[in-house]
Amino acid sequence: MKFTSVVTSIAVLLVSAVSALWALPISLQPRDVFVPPVTYPHNKTVWIVGQHHNVTWDTSDAPVNITNKIGMIFLRKGGLTTNLSLASNFSILLGRIVVEVPHVETGRDYQVVLFGDSGNFSPFFTITNV
């Protein structure tokens, strides 16, 4: 009986200690999700395979504390994001990054996706081989 009382007392002590730790205020710095609109390519853009282009986005209203400042750009075709990485590991605050147009099937149903805090799609544009 005495052993049970000791175990119960220890359990109550542990639960109290953990509860006290959870009650401590945690100092978190507020962060904002940054969703910069892609400005290029736009719906009249035609990219030719092998060329280099600047993918651009508007950083004019960037918050001070961005959740994720590291960007990546992927190619999207027909409403699905592909595994074709056009650029990665750059500051989302740059506002532009040079990419090389990959060898892909010709079509008008392409978009670039700018990842950082979120995924921002460009308008649909065309990629051609000529």
Rank of each mutant, 00 (worst) to 15 (best):
L86V: 10
K77C: 07
V130S: 11
F74Q: 08
P30W: 02
P102R: 01
G79R: 09
Q51F: 03
L14Q: 08
V101A: 07
V6R: 14
V35H: 13
V18R: 09
V99D: 01
I66F: 07
L24G: 03
L84H: 12
L93G: 08
F90Y: 12
L14H: 07
I48H: 13
V18N: 09
K69Y: 12
P25R: 04
N65I: 07
D109M: 05
V18C: 08
T82K: 03
R108M: 14
I73A: 03
V12P: 05
P25I: 03
V113M: 11
T67Y: 14
K69A: 13
L28A: 14
W22A: 12
P102L: 00
Q29P: 06
I10S: 09
L93E: 11
W47H: 02
F121A: 08
Y110F: 06
D117I: 03
G71I: 02
N120F: 04
D58T: 06
G107D: 07
S16P: 05
S9Y: 06
M1G: 10
H103F: 15
P41L: 01
R108P: 14
Q111H: 06
S122N: 03
V33E: 11
T56C: 06
V130R: 10
F3R: 15
N43W: 09
V46K: 04
S91Q: 10
H42Y: 13
P36N: 04
I127R: 00
R31V: 14
K69L: 14
A20C: 08
V46P: 00
F3W: 14
M72W: 14
P123Y: 04
T45I: 03
I48G: 07
N89V: 11
G71F: 01
V112N: 00
N83W: 12
V18S: 11
W47Y: 08
V99E: 01
A20R: 08
V104I: 12
